[in-house]
């Protein structure tokens, strides 16, 4: 299909990359907003008081590894190996779900410790940033599950491996955003109250 275009690139893949370029500005704005407000914790808990680095490290690692399984799923479908493709797609979705589960657990813990969405500018910025990322991951999981369903209906074959590749690009992007968030928001020493 792609041979027909001027650049030789497929429309869909090019569009996904343009979209990812756009997403950089979106997450950039959210991260900058967070950085601006990380000190503004008003009367509520400070980031340094509540972040649980070991826990987040584990869930970050899970998300990172889902990138591996995603690329393995792509490699499988490109070989025409439908069985492994399904296996890795499912694993990726599961790892993503584990990450989301971790985020839900983290959020509930924070709320229990007194950091609600409206507690302070810091809390609003934190939940908004990580929430946006979480929504991205969740959408990714929905897309992966759709791929799986489509695979079991026999629609996902070597011929349309590009669909897997494009959803994979999105998935990896969401992963690299978390690489940044994990370092900038969690690991860089945080203010305490």
């Amino acid at each position: 299909m792609s041979e027909e275009t001027t650049t030789g690139l497929s429309h869909n893949k090019l569009a996904m990359w343009v979209f990812l370029g756009s997403e950089c500005l979106l997450f950039g704005a959210l991260i900058s907003t967070y950085l601006l407000y990380r000190n503004k914790f008003y009367d509520g808990p400070a980031p340094g008081d509540i972040f649980d680095i070991p826990f987040t490290s584990v869930s970050s690692f899970v998300l990172l590894m889902s990138s591996l399984t995603m690329v393995l799923a792509l490699a499988a479908i490109q070989r025409g190996d439908i069985r492994n493709n399904r296996l890795w797609l499912l694993t990726t979705a599961l790892l993503g779900a584990v990450f989301i589960g971790g985020q839900v657990y983290e959020f509930t813990t924070f709320i229990r410790e007194g950091l609600g969405y409206t507690t302070s500018p810091f809390s609003s910025a934190f939940f908004t940033l990580t929430g946006f990322h979480g929504v991205h991951v969740s959408l990714g999981i929905v897309m992966l599950m759709s791929l799986l369903i489509s695979s079991y209906r026999g629609k996902l074959t070597q011929k349309n491996s590009e669909t897997v590749e494009i959803i994979g690009l999105y998935w990896h992007f969401v992963d690299v955003v978390w690489i940044i968030i994990f370092t900038v928001i969690y690991l860089v020493p945080n203010p305490t109250s």
């Binding site: 690139l9 990359w17 370029g21 950089c24 500005l25 991260i31």
Partner: peptide, 18 residues
Amino acid sequence: KMFTRFFVSGIVLAISVY
């Protein structure tokens, strides 16, 4: 390289603007 260009444009623009 076209893909890299769009991605890098986004990243560079985001980093410099923010």
